[in-house]
Amino acid sequence: MANNEKTIEIEVLRYRPEEDDKPFLQSFKVPFTDDMSVLQGVQYIKDYLDGSVSFRWSCRMAICGSCGMMINGVPKLSCKTFLREYYPGKITLEALKHFPIEKDLVIDLSDFIGKLESIKPYIVPDAPRALEEGEYLQTPRQLDRIAQFSSCINCMLCYAACPQYGLKPEYLGPAAIALLHRYNEDNRDSAKAERMQLLNAHEGVWGCTLVGYCSEVCPKDVDPAAAINRNKVNSTIDYLLRFVAPRGGN
């Protein structure tokens, strides 16, 4: 590296479950160049300053969804946030909000995984189709209806942005509802009725009070708030329809 090297202060909210009762801030001075991401900054800390700092990462290109953290209070992907944006100020890093901290910047996301599994995130076809019959037809327009909602990388930034999730962890939450919507809107699927029950519940779309921050922080323009609020409409229609034409028991 060049000798006119700049350094930036990075504070990390540490929590070591085997030693600490509660988290504390630890500060590091990190040399950096203009093209370095926040992730590279934390990697530098781990590699050369304190090997015990723990965090998740892999792809470095904003697609694997591992590296989310609170960067100066805002949920972001650390691999696509750059140190230069904060210099000469300091950066404070914290594990994603609203999730339990396992260690340092690592959260426990098993709650979300459970929710993802619960929404039947797969195509349930009307009648199974043999491979020899080839692909289902889907026009670009039909694809467009699901394209944005199928771009979710499960990075959990939206949950860290959602105070309702922080207050009521039962709430299904933005990404899970966006994914549910993606399958409901897919012309190849026929399990909408079953998924609607999840949405109609109190922990479903009605857990949302339209703070709208989830869509603002989403790094992939999924716009989960749109999925949630469109389904408030759907859920209401579904509710009314049940008075008009009650469905048989299941």
């Binding site: 797969y122 195509i123 076809p125 189709r129 491979l131 080839g134 692909e135 289902y136 037809l137 889907q138 026009t139 670009p140 039909q142 694809l143 699901i146 394209a147 199928s150 399958y183 897919d186 190849r188 699927d189």
Partner: peptide, 22 residues
């Protein structure tokens, strides 16, 4: 080919032509 069709049946959002084919 059959494996990619299988992926399609499982929901993979492949890009399409105007007529809906892959």
């Amino acid at each position: 080919h059959e494996e990619l069709v299988q992926m399609e049946h499982w929901g993979c959002p492949w890009n399409r032509k105007e007529d809906g084919h892959i």
